[in-house]
């Protein structure tokens, strides 16, 4: 299979600091790959290596089947990118910034600039100097630059950073539609898990420079364990009652937790048992671990 992104043993150190260590990534065409990690986990270093901006100490990087670097070699005509905080020439307008990018991308079609301005909702700010744009609009400008040449692969570092909630949803939908309708591969890093949860087809978790887990969307679904959480005024009696009824009860702080499927699938029966024993629940809820919980658990385990 030919991958859109392929790294083998990618490692990068800065002096004594190991920014990324032995990262093996495989991102297939048309995937939306969510690359998750805490600040300083190695996300941006990995992205810079994918874009040939830094030279790995070890390992190799292939993008769209072509080896990346040295000397900035790569299939950049087919790759759009956004690295870290958005930057633009402050004395140029948004349109001029995009025109500079268009020419450097070698796109002869002058209309490409106007199209991407419309697409990213920048029309009202197109003739405003980039130095006067808000962080959110600067981010949109960065995304517009990444999309200007209709790339096959988008490598985006925190694409929703600086956007308002409506903007986050808009960009999420835009990326999803690019992947679904045009088969664009999206590799996006984030430390905001909800940003990738729900629309990423695969998720990689990087921690302290190492790729510690990769999850398919379905796998994530399975991994996200459900549990029944119970609160009662007399927690001890409730625990004893449930234990006598044959449940394996865990106590977490002031909450009773049941993770057996017979409890999760029939919380009404659990409630009946407690009511009959004279200790009705004050709270009864089926809780599902989300990506954030999973991520936190995983990274904490590796501390």
């Amino acid at each position: 299979m030919s991958y859109a992104i392929e790294t083998d043993g990618l490692s990068k150190s800065y002096g004594e600091v190991r920014a990324v260590e032995s990262v093996n990534l495989r991102v297939g065409p048309g995937e939306i790959y969510g690359f998750l990690g805490l600040n300083g986990a190695g996300k941006t270093t990995t992205i810079r290596a994918l874009l040939g901006m830094i030279r790995p100490n070890a390992g190799s990087v292939k993008v769209l089947g072509q080896a990346v670097g040295p000397n900035g070699r790569g299939p950049w005509r087919k790759v759009g990118h956004l690295v870290e905080r958005p930057a633009a020439y402050p004395e140029l307008t948004a349109r001029e910034n995009l025109d500079v990018a268009r020419r450097l991308q070698g796109i002869p079609d002058v209309g490409a600039t106007s199209r991407v301005i419309e697409h990213l909702g920048l029309a009202a700010y197109a003739d405003r100097k980039a130095g006067a744009l808000s962080t959110g609009n600067l981010q949109r400008l960065g995304l517009a630059r990444a999309l200007l040449h209709e790339p096959e692969l988008l490598i985006l570092d925190e694409p929703a950073s600086g956007l308002d909630p409506a903007g986050v949803v808009e960009i999420r939908e835009l990326l999803a539609s690019l992947a679904q309708e045009k088969g664009v591969t999206v590799f996006m890093s984030s430390h905001i898990l909800t940003e990738v949860e729900g629309h990423a087809t695969r998720i990689g978790i990087i921690h302290q420079g190492r790729l510690i887990e990769e999850l398919e969307a379905e796998q994530l679904e399975r991994l996200q364990s459900r549990r029944l959480e119970i609160k009662a005024r007399d927690l001890d009696t409730a625990r004893t009652t449930l234990a006598e009824a044959g449940f394996a009860v865990q106590v977490r702080e002031d909450v009773l937790v049941l993770d057996e499927s017979r409890a999760i699938d029939a919380p009404d029966e659990v409630a009946t048992i407690l009511v009959n024993a004279g200790t009705p629940p004050s709270r009864l809820a089926v809780v599902q671990e989300n990506l954030e919980d999973h991520f936190m658990r995983l990274t904490r385990e590796r501390e």
Binding site: L51, G52, M53, N71, G72, R85, A101, L104, Q105, G106
Partner: peptide, 18 residues
Amino acid sequence: ADHTVKELLAIPTPRGII
């Protein structure tokens, strides 16, 4: 200073030309 250098690195126009 303007952090725009990253927009000049992974593009079809070679760095030497820039």
